[in-house]
Design a protein around this nucleic acid. Structure first.
Lengths: 127, 127, 127, 127
DNA sequence: GTGGTCTAGACCACA
DNA sequence: GTGGTCTAGACCACG
């Protein structure tokens, strides 16, 4: 039985120029991918999270719902929201994150006529 | 004297979910970085570009201005907009693109507890 | 005299996204309709059911009450809750279930301009 | 170039006991599936729809976004929301609707020990 | 003008 | 107590 989790405002880095809920999705997804939020963990309630992040509850809910769509969270009516306990959903999510990141770098490389390795080499060049 | 350039709608791939002007910046920047638009080339006017891309002129203007800010384009009043011929501007831009792309992949890797190499390996794993 | 019944957690499949009590109603109703719970059978008490299903007693109570409303269960104070032995209640319930299901499929068919048979054919089409 | 569409309150049947946005999704999806909203059609803006349905704009937006997730709508920034012009997305949606409806009827049939055909026959029986 | 995000606050069903 | 829906109204970026 994994313990409940709590979080504080300072657990999250927020960039006011981007959608808040999107950043919550990213950061919670990263915590799950890192194993920091083990399968079955109960997340703080929408209201509690909203209070500790000093944000509107609907903003938190939007993030939770998006994570549910990604199969990373499940909510049990009246009981709260939990990290999925299907370990493959989590592993799949890690792979998807990795693929998206690598694909995006490869696309940029291709757009300037380089391979991924050449891109990495170029990034390390001295001024 | 490099020839003028024209472009067609199909030279650009657009994704409705992201700002148009931003996509123009990226794609023109890529053309410059690839040498497809050599230094000194005169770009089509904002009006012409907007017409051939079937897009709002202010969108094109915003893209050109952003590229000027990046020192990749220069505008001579009454004569038009040209690809910079400062030789290092282009190479510097290539390095900046590469660094940004690599840094972003590294950050994602770190956020799920991996190195860049591990991230690339994970992305290549089979289903 | 039909024997008492007991049930285990695994007799019920639950979907977190729908009301629990509603799913109990459906599943108990199905057991009765199938003859798996013969007329006159005594059901486990609300407390026992709640315990073995690891569920809030009020949830079970709500399900039992709904099944009473459907005339499929009757409660004798102090003696417990029993499957009705009015012979037509069960057959009527089967017909009602069938009609509701068919009507709902017909309505969906109509909403996309098909008959029920066309809908069934479309559902069987290959990808 | 498909004509714009407008709609009135009475084009929608609403059941106050179920989420509004969900009903909008269903009904717009049905209109698309029926061909009543041809590919490429521009939907009324969120604000206009909200006004004619006498509903809050965010409720309409939620419906539009859900339909976008289903690949039935695409939105072009600053220009509005359009029915996708990929005809296969629409046909796929029709099949999905049909399959879900049929599967649900089959499941109910199975739960009372019948086949789909027997269920349909039972539904047609006289009182 | 378009869609999108966020807030504050109400109300509901479910457990 | 939980999540979920809806409203009214503000503000923003984009075209």
């Amino acid at each position: 039985m994994p313990p409940d989790i709590t979080w504080q405002l300072h657990d999250f880095q927020i960039d006011p120029s981007r959608p808040l809920y999107e950043q919550f999705v990213e950061q919670i997804r990263a915590m799950i991918a890192k194993g920091q939020l083990p399968p079955g963990t109960r997340l703080p309630s929408v209201r509690d999270t909203a209070a500790s992040l000093r944000v509107n509850p609907t903003t938190v809910m939007k993030a939770y719902q998006e994570l549910e769509r990604l199969s990373l969270l499940v909510t049990f009516r009246g009981q709260g929201t939990f990290v999925t306990d299907a370990p493959d959903a989590i592993q799949r999510s890690r792979r998807e994150l990795a693929r998206a990141a690598v694909r995006s770098a490869e696309e940029l490389a291709a757009s300037i006529g380089l391979t991924l390795n050449e891109l990495i080499a170029l990034a390390q060049e001295e001024e």
